[in-house]
Each structure stands twice: as structure tokens, then as C-alpha cells.
């Protein structure tokens, strides 16, 4: 393909930003994977399909809270955006059934982090 120009950057950016739909992100760096993130990802994928939920499942890097891995961040329209910690396969399925489909937040798994992003 032809080399990118500066204008192409904006085009790619707007294409990605359009997708403001619901999503689930799983932290998949070494610490997450060591704590079982791959199994969690597979469970989420499977359960989302079973429930027929139209939610985007994404992989991402490390949020930094290694002791709390695996971490799953869930953003569903109309619900607070939350991060679940120490997620196992059973919990992953509960996230899909309870949070994504049932509009309920899971008890005892939410982790809240205080941080600020530099622009």
C-alpha cells in the first residue's frame, strides 16, 4: 500500500472513534496471561457467543495492577464503566450473564483506581 500521509492519520482515527459501542477489554500482558487471562478471554468469548450479546471483546496491555490480575474492564451502555479483578472463568461467564445481559454489577470483584491521564 501507499505510504501514509498526515491526513490519513485523521481518517483512521475517526474511523476507529466511530465505534462507540459496548466493549469488554481483557488485560493480556505477561502478568495477566500468567494469572490466567487467556482462559478468561476464551470463557468470555464463548459466553458472549452463547448469549448472543453484541459486545466487542478486545485485548489490551497491562493496567498496572498486577496483584489483581486477570483484569477485565467492562463498558456497557447505561452502566458504570468498571474493572473486575482476579477474574476466573466462572466469574467471566457471570460478567456476561449478569453484567452484560442482566444489567447487574458483580459483587466483590470491582476494583477502582485513582489516576489521572496526562493529555
Amino acid at each position: 500500500m501507499a505510504a501514509l500521509t498526515a491526513d490519513d492519520l485523521a481518517a483512521i482515527a475517526s474511523r476507529i472513534h466511530d465505534q462507540n459501542a459496548s466493549w469488554i477489554r481483557v488485560g493480556m500482558s505477561t502478568c495477566g496471561i500468567a494469572a490466567g487471562a487467556e482462559r478468561v478471554y476464551a470463557a468470555l468469548e464463548d459466553e458472549l457467543q452463547r448469549q448472543g450479546a453484541g459486545v466487542q471483546l478486545k485485548k489490551c496491555g497491562c493496567l498496572g495492577m498486577c496483584a489483581a490480575e486477570p483484569l477485565v474492564e467492562v463498558n456497557i451502555a447505561g452502566m458504570p464503566r468498571v474493572i473486575y479483578c482476579r477474574v476466573d472463568e466462572a466469574c467471566a461467564r457471570d460478567i456476561v450473564r449478569g453484567h452484560v445481559c442482566g444489567g447487574k454489577l458483580l459483587q466483590d470483584y470491582i476494583i477502582d483506581m485513582q489516576s489521572e491521564d496526562a493529555s
Binding site: 505477561t30 502478568c31 496471561i33 500468567a34 494469572a35 495492577m65 498486577c66 496483584a67 489483581a68 490480575e69
Partner: peptide
């Protein structure tokens, strides 16, 4: 192994047990 959050840890081949 770079999984200090799971310490103490060991790896068998590539699989980490923490």
C-alpha cells in the same frame, strides 16, 4: 519472570505458576 504480582512464581516451559 516479570510477574512480581504473582510472587513467588515459577515457570514450567512457558507456563507461569504463581
Amino acid at each position: 519472570l516479570g510477574c512480581c504480582g504473582l510472587s513467588p512464581a515459577l515457570a514450567v516451559n512457558e507456563t507461569v505458576h504463581g
